[in-house]
Simulated assay, not measured.
Amino acid sequence: MENPALDKLLDYVSQCNLRDGDPLPPERTLAETLGISRRDLRGALASMEASGRVWRGVGRGTYLGARPLKFAPSLRSLRTGSSPADIAEMRLMLEPALIELATRKASPDELAELEKCAKRNAIARDDDEWQQWDHRFHLLIAQATRNTAIIALMDVVNGMRMKPNLREKTADQDTRRHFAQQHQAIVYAMMERDGETAAARMRDHLLNVQWRMPAKPE
């Protein structure tokens, strides 16, 4: 899928010799420099964030590279020996709980972005495109909590899921469409500020994900 705004942003990063950890200019300045709208710029940044190439902090700006984890020493051990089933089991415990907090705090713009992610999931043409928008969807929910510890933890979980040997597969279109419908049901509950229903919808979704995983070795 072509994305001219993303291409311009990547060219800018390359031409300016920016490296991981370097900050990007404020959105208004960067959009004017690139000759694109702020809406298109946000879409390009969202794409880069979903693939782990930038991170954005509330009140801090946008930086190249992966989000620095304050809790890295303790979270790093999560990557060791974890299986897709382990990750699915952990997500089932965490995400239904955190979404209730996100439902209370999410801004209208965040809810609109979540709805956009669900729609993009519904038309994803392959597993790679699905994963991009799926990771974006779940990370946005974490970010809506405004809790840096939760965001850091979900960053690690998403990073684990992106590893080829740890990621769940959504290879067929029927599965992708079904999961996208579940994402949309989650967003609708959040828009109604119904945290209990949002949590139940997330639990149903993650149970479906877990059901498709290989059995966890005893």
Rank of each mutant, 00 (worst) to 15 (best):
T103R: 02
K169I: 12
I150D: 00
T33D: 13
A189T: 11
R79M: 13
A189D: 07
L114G: 09
L64S: 09
D204I: 00
A102M: 08
P26H: 14
V156W: 06
A124V: 06
L139M: 14
M213V: 02
A199V: 06
T29K: 10
L10W: 02
K169G: 06
L166R: 12
N17R: 14
S51Q: 07
V54M: 00
S51N: 10
P68S: 05
L6D: 00
L94C: 03
W211I: 03
T170E: 02
A118F: 04
R193H: 11
G65S: 02
E218L: 14
E115S: 11
D127G: 03
A50D: 08
N158Y: 01
T33N: 07
H135S: 01
H205P: 05
E2Q: 15
L111H: 04
A72T: 05
Q173V: 12
K70P: 08
R201S: 02
P68H: 03
H183K: 04
M213T: 12
E168S: 13
D20M: 08
G81R: 09
K70G: 13
A142N: 01
D172H: 10
D172F: 11
A118D: 08
T29I: 09
G21P: 03
E168P: 02
S74P: 00
P68A: 02
R146L: 08
L41S: 01
E113H: 10
N147S: 02
M90C: 03
L75K: 12
K163F: 10
Y63D: 05
G57R: 09
C16E: 15
L6P: 04
L207P: 05
A199W: 00
I36N: 04
D174M: 12
H183Y: 06
L64V: 03
P68V: 07
D7P: 00
M48I: 01
R167H: 08
M160Y: 13
V209T: 10
T148D: 14
F179S: 12
N17D: 06
L207E: 15
G65H: 07
I150S: 05
P214R: 09
R161E: 15
E129L: 10
R136S: 13
E115N: 05
D174I: 15
M160S: 12
R161V: 11
R39K: 08
R104M: 14
R125H: 08
L140H: 06
A118K: 04
N17S: 15
E168T: 09
L111K: 10
L139Q: 12
A215K: 14
K105R: 15
A142S: 05
D7N: 12
S77L: 14
A149I: 12
D40L: 15
Y12E: 04
D174F: 08
A149H: 03
L92R: 11
L206G: 01
F179I: 15
Q210K: 15
D109C: 09
L45G: 06
S77D: 11
L9S: 00
K70Y: 08
L69A: 11
S74F: 13
H138C: 05
M190G: 07
N3P: 06
R212V: 01
A46M: 12
P4C: 06
N3E: 00
W55R: 10
F71H: 13
L206N: 05
I87H: 01
R67M: 11
A97G: 05
Q184C: 08
P23N: 05
P164H: 02
R28E: 14
T80W: 09
